[in-house]
Design a binder for these strands. Structure first.
Lengths: 347, 347
DNA sequence: ATGAAAGCGCTAACAA
DNA sequence: TTGTTAGCGCTTTCAT
């Protein structure tokens, strides 16, 4: 592998001139420049990233911190959406000449966190978090060393932390309101994940606020903790109908849960949306396939904005107030909630 | 950020002793070692990866080269499978203290390939390829500089290149054979993707070999180029039934295509499997959900083996013959092919 | 417009 | 067992 020294020798100039030509950090005579780039081409020279990083104190990597792949939240809604997120991030990173380092934390809690290690070792210049809840220890350490990071699909209420997300409270409020407007009174709620996920909390609060604004007290019998499976939607239905307070409508946490609801309904001969109206989140392919009304969560836009924000943080001169960017999103009304006519699941 | 110098000073030893203690590259007295690690802890010291990399000539990163995220093949079968692949790779990488660098190529072909750049700049110590076909230019360059890389879910027939994959020829042969054994004569084939994807080629060859071995000549009217959409399965059916040679069975390329087939059949009042038997690939959640007979493609195992192989290549002493590792996989028989009783799509 | 040289933080050969 | 020191390949200041 050739070095800048080789290029300098072959081109008959000093190494600083080569560096100036490559980085444009000082004027270089046109013919000298031409000679240098020809030699670079000929020798297949590529600056060593470690050497460069040692001087510039930049790695040109940004870390994307995700949950452990075998945790269900990782796929974040089953399908396309992680790819969308990556594309949103990648477009910005590519433009800036940055690479993407994918990392998740070690299962064993004894070793220091992988993120902190990456930050402290200078392996990444900034971090993008795609995690459902907060590890205060990690956040505090990052803040202490003033390391740039942005939360995606999440925000942080306790500390001033930058984030990009949809407004889950508002979204959930709208979902419930939509059902209320259709005349429903007994509206059940399924959380998208465990209750310590901030998204679950925000959604529940949006839902219950909508109900309260309509003078309906949320009934805890119509509350169920769901997860990233069809089965959790199915089980939620079993739970609701065994609770003594059968719902006439459901705010599901994920499209895949809604599919489980559809299954339950079909087995019991219930009609969607006549007997049970369903509204969900994600607006994924599943929602389209099964004609489910669903609130969009555009991960491409979230990733794109988060990456842009991170690069601002990385190159910032002075301190700045953290921002919580809210991505616009909306309810895609389909057949499952009764406002429009219903299509067949397989059509 | 503290450096090795700070640690040495604070612990009252030389920097080499600190280095020896950290890396275990020379014996260090127990009490000295203790003092050093206490200081490291106290200063929150973390070795700078660039400085270390500059000396050791290793980045401790491996690159995962994937198609551009907005290409449909990226998600590689819709859902969980990319996560499975990452987990398979991540387990091995984590063990070795390696990070994962995710990269895809630039859309504009003018700039040099991102992979080559990563390899030449020393940003990664090895590469894992998850791409459906081959860019000879890239491969040739990597081979020339003896850069370690492994193909996943693919192999390379022209050049000696390491790879980990299932045997797509064999898999497809078995799928067709299964249908032949059930008495089918008019068996159609849908490719999982464009024909220049090696997987498409291998699958078609397996399929046609099975037919030929049963003295049936593959009918080009029963051949369709599919993609990663439900619609392509649906369109394939339209094509077959307009061709004048209606099939009695289909070898679909992906589970999502099979769902499109189901939709077509349902609309025309055809019964699956009575009128049309369906066999597919991936054995994904969709296959389970729709009770589709499907051939498994376990990306966790593929990723795991590919990563192990890559680390062998990275640390190899002498040249070695490239290996093409074949991952065991099998046909999961469900209701869609007529060998077992059929469940309802939503159950 | 170009060159000489210092030094980024670390490892490892060599000396003690 | 520990310390001294020479680079690794690059950027950048300071001369010229």
């Amino acid at each position: 592998m050739s070095t800048i020294k080789d290029v300098a020798r072959e081109a008959g100039v000093s190494i600083s001139t080569v560096s100036f030509a490559i980085n444009g950090t000082a004027p270089v005579a046109p013919e000298t420049k031409k000679r240098i780039f020809e030699t670079i081409e000929r020798l297949n020279y590529q600056p060593n990233s470690a050497a460069r990083g040692l001087v510039t104190r930049k790695s040109n990597n940004i870390g994307i911190f995700v949950p452990h792949p075998d945790s269900s939240i990782f796929t974040f809604s089953g399908n396309q959406l992680f790819a969308n997120l990556l594309q949103g991030i990648g477009e910005v990173a590519g433009e800036k000449g940055y690479n993407l380092l994918l990392a998740w934390d070690r299962p064993d809690k004894e070793k220091p966190s992988k993120v902190i290690e990456l930050a402290r070792s200078g392996s990444v210049d900034g971090l993008l978090f795609l995690i459902p809840n907060h590890d205060h220890t990690i956040i505090d350490q990052l803040i202490e060393i003033k390391f740039p990071f942005v939360f995606m699909g999440n925000h942080y209420s306790d500390k001033p932390v930058d984030s990009v997300d949809i407004d889950n409270f508002q979204a959930s409020y709208e979902c419930a309101s939509h059902l209320l407007k259709l005349g429903h009174k007994r509206i059940a709620f399924i959380s998208p994940g465990p209750l310590d996920f901030l998204v679950s909390e925000d959604r529940y609060e949006g839902y219950s606020s909508a109900l309260k604004d309509a003078y309906i007290e949320p009934d805890e019998r119509l509350f169920y903790v769901g997860d990233d499976s069809k089965a959790s939607g199915y089980r939620a239905m079993e739970h609701f109908f065994a609770s003594g307070e059968s719902p006439s409508a459901i705010v599901a946490g994920r499209d895949v849960q809604a599919v489980g609801i559809l299954k339950y309904a079909k087995e019991r001969g219930m009609d969607i949306p006549r007997d049970i109206a369903v509204v969900s989140f994600e607006n994924s392919q599943l929602a389209e396939m099964y004609d489910i009304t669903s609130y969009s969560t555009d991960l491409y836009v979230i990733g794109n904005n988060a990456a842009k924000m991170l690069f601002k943080l990385i190159s910032r001169k002075k301190e700045r107030q953290p921002q919580n960017v809210v991505i616009p999103s909306e309810l895609f009304v389909r057949g499952s909630c009764g406002s429009v006519s219903r299509n067949d699941p397989l059509s």
